[in-house]
Nucleic acid binder design. Structure first.
Lengths: 220, 220
DNA sequence: CTAAACTGTGTATAAAGTACACAGAAATAA
DNA sequence: TTATTTCTGTGTACTTTATACACAGTTTAG
């Protein structure tokens, strides 16, 4: 913490330096369910609590770069779709020191990333939405906000980051939607709506090993 | 900047302290137009550039409290509706030192707040959307993002903060909407949609001084 | 008192969303 | 190889929501 005079920011007040952390809600799609990547912390405070992966912003790095860095360190996940969610600045949100966190969400394919606990993490695991433990710090709140943001984005834009393979059937896409939004859709209506967005095209291949021989689609 | 070991954040990396600033896009409704409060900076860098009011986060304050503080210092604006927009962390966004900014928007009635330039500000002025100057730092971007967020929020929730007086006519409300969203609406359709939201009630008074004698409404 | 300007209202049409059932294709089991 | 099971793929009627549009009533200004 230091006084820096009028140069420190757009309009100057006394300057106050503070630890900035990034936290990331990593969503994955596994066993036809939306999963969330949680880590178990092996040190105080909140020893043995599950929480979102996160860590301090890196010097000379942007927030996005810091998130990528943290996730890479933790799990080997690299260069993924990140979306900013919100900032958290309650004075008491960290029991030991003042930390302002910026939260993000990310969409990945779990099968692409073996997860290995490192750096003060004793366990790491994909959790379904229906089996979530209570999280350390204020991460219950962060998760709730991230999930809300994901749902909002999905309803407007058709976002699926890396949650599906390059080629997928419409049924797989529908199951992804149902899993994220937590509701069921009629197959015909869903296909109508998705296809008239005009961003998917059928390949001339069918998916093997599944009855009915569904055709595979890809993004245009 | 200091090393703090494993306690500094949820999952520990090396800790890095950094200046955090808050910037605020203050929207007001004046002369039937959406206005934005800008300040002219009287010191380097970006001396004599217009920009959004902002300043460093205060020690022991949340981000929202810091915004209120900055605005109060600048303009006497107190305790207003704040909405978080986004974070900005490009390494080069401030030419002198590293600053991470969190941006907000606020909705106020200009006539309630006389604006007085203070604290390294030489001028302060309400600008219409069609007469905006280029802003210092990356504030053009911040403004664009804040305006987009305001529009999104308006379409979903019916947000009007303190932009209108307690009692207002439906025409005034419609003009506010048109001004924010930048499009015209049919009077009958607009009234139908707004009224069936069920959050407005007519008072039994008419607004005087305007032809047609429109009835005043208030929020339920 | 008259003219000008604004308010307040309903209906017809178009678009979007929702509900719903059966024939065809591929895998599996006999 | 055939029969059975399970999943895919498709159209239409109906409901809800959004859009287009005109005229009579009220108040101010002159």
């Amino acid at each position: 913490m230091s006084k820096l005079g009028p140069l420190d920011t757009a309009v100057s007040l006394n300057s106050y330096e503070c630890t900035i952390a990034v936290e990331c809600c990593v969503f994955g799609f596994q066993d036809n369910k939306l999963k969330i990547l949680l880590v178990k912390r092996s040190i105080e405070p909140f020893k043995d609590h599950w929480m979102l992966p996160g860590g301090a912003m890196g010097e000379g790095k942007t927030l996005s770069q810091s998130v990528n860095n943290v996730l890479d360190n933790l799990t080997g996940i690299k260069k993924i779709v990140l979306e900013q969610v919100a900032s958290y600045s309650d004075v008491e949100r960290h029991p030991v020191k003042r930390v302002v966190s910026i939260s993000f969400y990310a969409l990945v394919k779990p099968e692409n990333y073996p997860v290995i606990p490192k750096n003060y993490i004793s366990e790491i695991k994909w959790y379904g939405l229906d089996e979530l433990p209570n999280l350390g710090f204020d991460h219950d709140q962060l998760l709730e906000d991230a999930l809300r943001k994901l749902r909002e984005n999905l309803k407007e834009h058709l976002v699926f980051g890396e949650l599906l393979p390059d080629q997928f059937t419409l049924t797989e896409l529908q199951e992804l939607y149902e899993s994220i939004l937590g509701e069921k859709f009629d197959r015909r209506n869903f296909r109508k709506k998705i296809l008239q967005m005009g961003i998917l095209e059928p390949t001339n291949q069918k998916k093997l090993g599944v009855k009915g021989g569904p055709v595979l689609y890809r993004r245009t």
